[in-house]
Design a protein around this nucleic acid. Sequence first.
DNA 1: TACTAAACGAGACGGTACGTCGTGTCTTCCC
DNA 2: GGGAAGACACGACGTACCGTCTCGTTTAGTA
Lengths: 194, 194, 194, 194
Amino acid sequence: MEERTRPLGRPRSEDARLAVLRAVDDMLVEEGYAAMTMKGIAERAKVGRQTVYRWWSSKAEILLEASAADAVRELTVPPSESAEGDVVAFLAALSGFLTESDAGLAYRALLGEAQHDAKVAELLRGTDVLGDAARVLIAQVQDRGGLVGFAGAARETLVAELVGPTLFRTLVEGRPVEPAAIADMSQRFLATSR
Amino acid sequence: MEERTRPLGRPRSEDARLAVLRAVDDMLVEEGYAAMTMKGIAERAKVGRQTVYRWWSSKAEILLEASAADAVRELTVPPSESAEGDVVAFLAALSGFLTESDAGLAYRALLGEAQHDAKVAELLRGTDVLGDAARVLIAQVQDRGGLVGFAGAARETLVAELVGPTLFRTLVEGRPVEPAAIADMSQRFLATSR
Amino acid sequence: MEERTRPLGRPRSEDARLAVLRAVDDMLVEEGYAAMTMKGIAERAKVGRQTVYRWWSSKAEILLEASAADAVRELTVPPSESAEGDVVAFLAALSGFLTESDAGLAYRALLGEAQHDAKVAELLRGTDVLGDAARVLIAQVQDRGGLVGFAGAARETLVAELVGPTLFRTLVEGRPVEPAAIADMSQRFLATSR
Amino acid sequence: MEERTRPLGRPRSEDARLAVLRAVDDMLVEEGYAAMTMKGIAERAKVGRQTVYRWWSSKAEILLEASAADAVRELTVPPSESAEGDVVAFLAALSGFLTESDAGLAYRALLGEAQHDAKVAELLRGTDVLGDAARVLIAQVQDRGGLVGFAGAARETLVAELVGPTLFRTLVEGRPVEPAAIADMSQRFLATSR
DNA sequence: TACTAAACGAGACGGTACGTCGTGTCTTCCC
DNA sequence: GGGAAGACACGACGTACCGTCTCGTTTAGTA
């Protein structure tokens, strides 16, 4: 059996890669997505412009790589004592993620850009951050015995039912969902399934 | 009592205003939001650039003026025979609006831009197109006797519960919600609110 | 009879034009032709890059406009007491121009560039600085009675005979022609033309 | 007495050297001097870029090495039946060299570059191609008994008198000198010396 | 035969100029 | 004073080449 041989030439610099990701992370928070430019990223990272373009084709792509892991981590909630506790914790995490976290800021910027840039939409569809997190939570709740008796089309809408209301509030209003509303949403979500 | 006197000088040209709005409408469909520029709009409308800047401060502002009326019209559904019929009709209209209508394309672009541009977010908050339409529908359903017995926090989440799931599906997946899912969402919405 | 109407829009800025020409003049002396860039010129002139490109298509074109008038002036010599005096004065001026004058530095750079850039060659052919100056001098000498009895092909070579030797010395050796050599060249030129 | 020991390591590749020289030769004709780049040369020669930089420091240097021998050969004319025949043959060769030969194209490019790049000027001064050829021709003519009675400063200007006029015509006008003019120039050159 | 050392190809690196485009402002003349 | 035209200073775009670097490989002499 053969080892895969290294590509020819000087290998990619991990230093440069990390410097770019870090620069994007910092600039998003400090200056905002709109003010970020490929030129600015390169300068901030002390990296050649060509080096950025060689490995990423847009600031959206860099941002996705820089924030995807954080997003997944922030949306993973430890099991609580009850199904309702799990859902409440998840929705609270989701609300916080979308309105107060750096990774969530990145996600909102990307989801926003996806609405008028097909390339970014495509990119984002490759990593359904919110959907994946929701599916994990739903499976967790089902294992406890909640959410029994779903079938067919109903199951497919569960993710939307769980995530949608919070997404609406945060995207449209731009601020966290208050705890009372989260409690209400959680009850509604579980009510239809019991 | 004196009539308020007309401002001095040449009055604003309605021709120019309409030409700009029409140009923005057309360009959004033909080239997309990202490719639209203030310069391009002025040229397409055969209008001086200064004239565009004099009356609007960004392409988002023009787009909002150009599409708001259409959006409201498309999201107004006539009463049907039942509460469920009303909700289904509304969600279908919402799904179609967000994925297939020109006005919806504009709304998605604006909502997207609002995620990384505070000015646009502010602008959009002034006209809560989706929320207003949802509130009208909810009032309509309540008048029929559906949705009784709500109070406090619960009432505030109703809009999000109605609109959120469909918004999630369309924004994240970028395609219309299938009829079976709409039916399911409608039933859940009514079930948890009775 | 009609006045020629001014073109539409904001007229060209004379300030910007002069700032660019002055910048090119200065930079040629301070940094040299090779180190001069369109970007550098714009920055030095505190002018937008687009403004430079709008009116000139290359640094050669700017340099020509900036130095042509000076070149003509420096190569115009006042009549002296004798034909030989005129020729000596001209060759001395030519030698000085090509090796010590700023305008001559520009001319050498342009003539050099013309050797590997057809656009510049074309440009330079439109203004035969050396040839014109030589023709003026030759006419001057002929008016005195020197250079009688020329005809046909012979006449066409006069300019080359006058300018060529000095051009060779300066271009190839890069330093002024010594006075003794100038005297010698002048005598030969007149001797072979009488 | 010791032989100079070969340096350690892998010896220079003659293949690579020739490939580079050939690439430069071809590219000069096909694309022109200005369009030639170190990167392009390396790629065309299928040679690493470092290899080019290891042995030459600029494209001018490569071009000089690639064309010097050809230049000398093209400017060496066999003795004819008369002194005038020799001079005519030389000037014809010079005119053809500067306007139609590949080696002459290279020489013109180098002489041009030398006008705004001191490094190239230095380089070119090391090999006075035109001057050397002219000196050979002059010695040849003198041996026949032409050009007698020169001394001092006069002798030093002979080369310039011979080469200059043709150089002027070719550099400034960019086309060959017509035969009648060459004949005229030859007569003038010999006239002052007899 | 193994070791050392330099040249080799490939190609990524940090820089910088290219020529174009869009920004928002200005200056001109015309209505 | 509004409007069309278009020049202005500014700065990002994505590309190309600069000259250097870091890989693995090749080719010689030396041990």
